[in-house]
Design a protein around this nucleic acid. Structure first.
Lengths: 240, 240
DNA sequence: GTCAGTTGTCTAGACAGGTAGACATGTGAG
DNA sequence: CTCACATGTCTACCTGTCTAGACAACTGAC
């Protein structure tokens, strides 16, 4: 895909493969010895050691000199339910986590044809763009960019800045209730800026959700793009 | 997180950030000049050039000497609906894609406490484990590992090998219909083995779905873990 | 204690990644 | 044409990655 390699070092790829094997249950307790792993991946023992060092620093592995390397009990990801009524604050409180939202930036944009179709508005309509950070117990979980009609919700930015909750901000702007109409999901490597904002590793992965929320009349109230840190969050859909 | 860096080269991180900006719409048509990008990221111009070279090789950018660098019309991801009735073959046919499934490996495992809880069976029950690859129009989209009760579905492996469809294989084993009960989603960097199986870049990202399918009586029929290539697939949930 | 097998540490060398600077070459506005 | 500005190419140098080999130190079985 690029001139030479792919921009990911060998030890990183080995580390990713070991992590994946742990997630699969392929490796459950003790890792193979460094020499065996080196042979299996066709790399030098030092390269394996570096991969293990990275996973140890992450708290995923535990090395015992003379005995071997072992898998730690991994910390659970925070569960994030996705349904027709997705509310960040409620979700966190149910898991005994203290939710908060922080405004990063806000400005105006004019809706292009894509955004106009999503929000069912005219091309060129003024939209509030709201960048925010979702935090639970002080740990950043996700970063969102929301788009609202500036005409319909003139005070939404201030309301969010005060409350730290989109649900609450919408309520102040007259939206009694809303529900999720559509959610689209994909994933990417985290961007440099987002890694800084969410204080995570530069090689982290984000789940990207693009969703439309509608009011009780079915009229779109917001388009929201959220990047969830994949190693801190698990999205759950109950389909009953 | 590790001794020195994070195992991702500088040019790769710059490339990821540019890609992310394109996805956001922050960059829509023309990129800033190489010198400006270098200044913005605090790196050398050559490093920016390498990042651009990688994105150009991916078909995302187009460079015109003396004029500048521009964003190409990006190819759409294949839409993969996730609902209570998720069927790979039907989904692909609706998008005029030719679906196929290939068996990678199959063996037996004994259910541990986690798997027993998911499939509502006793610990120690024999389970078929089925590794398969889902392909659309010759392009690998995802890799799955399914677990079935060996007692209830003795011939499921053969049935899948013949038909290349889990739905069809289950039907032959007496499951008239089934539906999705729960889907859990996270994401990771692709493992070396999966990158080879799905013939993608070593630095690709996968969406990991862990799901339970139940029959009409509500009894679990399979636990399935699927890794979708994030740059080829978009998961869509309609929540009406 | 002995021994096989494990992780820890050191040295040295080949090669890719990143920085720095210089200059060539194409483009479009004036 | 001229000029500012864009990308293309080259050399030189330093640092980090990966390989290779050797040896030390620790663990558990015998």
């Amino acid at each position: 895909m690029s001139p030479d390699g792919d921009g990911v070092t060998l030890w990183r790829r080995v580390a990713d493969d070991i992590r994946s094997n742990i997630g699969d249950g392929t490796i459950s307790d003790a890792l193979p010895s460094e020499l065996e792993l080196a042979a299996r991946y066709g790399v030098n023992r030092h390269t394996v050691r570096r991969a293990i060092a990275a996973l140890t620093a992450d708290g995923l592995l535990r090395v015992e000199r003379g005995r071997g390397t072992f898998v730690n009990n991994k910390p659970q990801r925070i569960v994030y339910p996705i349904g027709s009524r997705t509310r960040f604050s409620e979700n966190m409180l149910k898991q005994s986590l203290e939710p908060s939202g922080r405004l990063i930036k806000s400005d105006y944009v004019l809706s292009d044809s894509v955004m106009a179709a999503l929000l069912k508005c005219r091309v060129g309509t003024r939209l509030h763009r709201l960048d925010s950070l979702a935090v639970a117990d002080g740990i950043p979980l996700s970063r969102s960019t929301s788009y609202f009609s500036a005409e319909r919700f003139p005070g939404i930015i201030e309301a969010y800045a005060e409350t730290g909750s989109i649900t609450e901000a919408l309520r102040r702007e007259g939206v009694v209730d809303y529900r999720r109409r559509e959610t689209r999901l994909t994933a990417e490597r985290v961007s440099a800026r987002d890694a800084e904002l969410m204080s995570c590793a530069a090689d982290a992965v984000v789940l990207i959700s693009r969703a439309i929320d509608v009011d009780l009349e079915g009229q779109p109230v917001q388009f929201i793009r959220t990047k969830f840190l994949a190693d801190r969050v698990e999205l759950v859909m109950l389909q009953s």
